[in-house]
């Protein structure tokens, strides 16, 4: 555990909690892509199956349980409790265009051809693109609430910090996981455009809106 990984995990946790609180306090999931949230629930479920087979640390187990629990709670709020506020018409990204190629890639390129390892790889690949329905929705409506941009910033920052963690681990532990690193790089690059808008607009007190 190094400082980049810890702050990455905390940034990830902050993102998840910001989103849950935003929906809960405003009693609305307007502007939130339910499809991205379902994908994140799938990501956590397929990645953390090792909760059933191996114990790494109390930190590891509790974070995994919190992430999975919050992911399903978010999906529940969007599709059940506050369904009336869900903006399905704008959440029109075709997720099969992500899930099918990512599934194929996980079967072809993995560390070990076993069910658990393929599902772990699938979750890594899927996570890297799971935000696309959300970014697509924002580009379609042309705007995002400020609290939603804070959520996206923390979520993007988390994988960027993990990149620093992997550089650290390579130098100090000789640890190298190319699948995680390349997927993490793709994931971070997808946020770059958003990071630019966040810094130039939201941090200066303006609402994030895209030119028509």
């Amino acid at each position: 555990m190094n400082v980049f990984r810890l702050t990455g995990d905390l940034s990830h946790l902050a993102a998840i909690i910001i989103l849950l609180l935003k929906i809960w306090k405003s009693r609305s999931c307007a502007g939130i892509s339910g499809k991205s949230q379902i994908l994140f629930a799938v990501v956590f479920t397929t990645r953390y199956l090792d909760l059933l087979t191996s114990f790494i640390s109390l930190y590891n187990t509790s974070m995994k349980l919190i992430y999975i629990g919050c992911a399903y709670a978010t999906v529940y709020l969007i599709y059940m409790k506050f369904r009336a506020t869900y903006d399905g018409n704008h959440d029109s990204f075709r997720v099969e265009f992500l899930v099918v190629p990512v599934g194929g890639l996980a079967v072809l390129i993995n560390h070990n051809f076993s069910l658990m390892e393929i599902l772990w790889t699938f979750s890594i690949y899927l996570e890297s693109v799971a935000i696309l329905p959300q970014l697509f929705m924002i580009s379609k409506t042309g705007e995002a609430e400020t609290i939603t941009t804070h959520y996206l910033f923390c979520l993007g920052l988390y994988r960027a910090l993990y990149l620093l963690n992997w550089i650290w681990r390579y130098y100090f532990e000789g640890f190298l996981d190319m699948i995680a690193i390349l997927a993490g790089l793709v994931q971070t690059i997808l946020y770059c455009d958003f990071f630019y808008l966040y810094v130039t607009k939201v941090l200066k007190g303006k609402k994030l809106s895209l030119p028509a």
Binding site: D50, S57, W120, N165
Partner: peptide, 10 residues
């Protein structure tokens, strides 16, 4: 390098 497919990261 251990090949015990344990992923300690989240």
């Amino acid at each position: 390098d251990s090949d015990d497919d344990e992923h300690d990261e989240l």
